[in-house]
Simulated assay, not measured.
Amino acid sequence: MPPPPIAPDGPGQVPYGYPGGAGGYPAAGAGGPGYPAQGPGYYGWSGMHPLPSNGMGTAGLVLGIISAVIFCLWPVAIVVGVLAVIFGAVGRGKARRGEATNPGQALAGIICGVAGVALGVGVLVLVVATGSWR
């Protein structure tokens, strides 16, 4: 669909949805008078920091709690505990670099993961020592 014809005294106000933005304002990231041009897909002020990526630390904490709670299911508790330690360590690394804001959650995930692995190994030793697995 072609743009509407231009009036003799100038383009006037550009309708919404046509190139150049709505209401005479430049499109997002296009720059303009007093506004620096940003990269494609940029929707924010130029001075804003990116949002923290707290997912790894939170995942480490959740997996650590789960591994500590379900230690009676020792194979699952050991695997989930090891994953909690890995995710917690990655989360601590992100917090150290300033990419995340939850170093305490990541540390708690590491601690709970180690506790879950220790409890799972303890149940494994108990099962093997008593021979109740036969």
Rank of each mutant, 00 (worst) to 15 (best):
G39S: 12
G29I: 05
A28T: 06
Y25W: 14
A37G: 05
Y16H: 13
G39Q: 12
G41Y: 05
P52R: 03
P36G: 06
G39F: 06
G47L: 11
A22C: 09
P33Y: 05
L51Q: 15
Y18R: 10
P36C: 03
G17C: 02
G23A: 10
P33T: 01
W45Y: 14
P50E: 12
A37E: 15
P36R: 09
Y43Q: 13
G31V: 06
A27N: 04
Q38P: 00
G44W: 00
Y43S: 14
G41L: 06
S46A: 14
G20P: 07
M48R: 12
P26C: 04
G32F: 03
W45C: 04
H49P: 07
G32Y: 04
G17K: 02
P52L: 02
G21S: 02
S53P: 02
G20L: 00
G29S: 04
A27F: 00
G21E: 06
S53F: 10
Y18L: 10
P40C: 02
M48E: 15
M48P: 02
G29R: 00
Y25H: 07
M48C: 05
Y43H: 14
Y42S: 10
W45T: 08
A37N: 07
G20N: 01
G20H: 03
W45R: 13
G21D: 01
P26H: 07
G23F: 13
P36H: 05
P26I: 06
Y35R: 12
A22F: 06
H49Y: 13
A28P: 15
G20R: 00
S53E: 13
P36F: 05
P50W: 09
W45V: 01
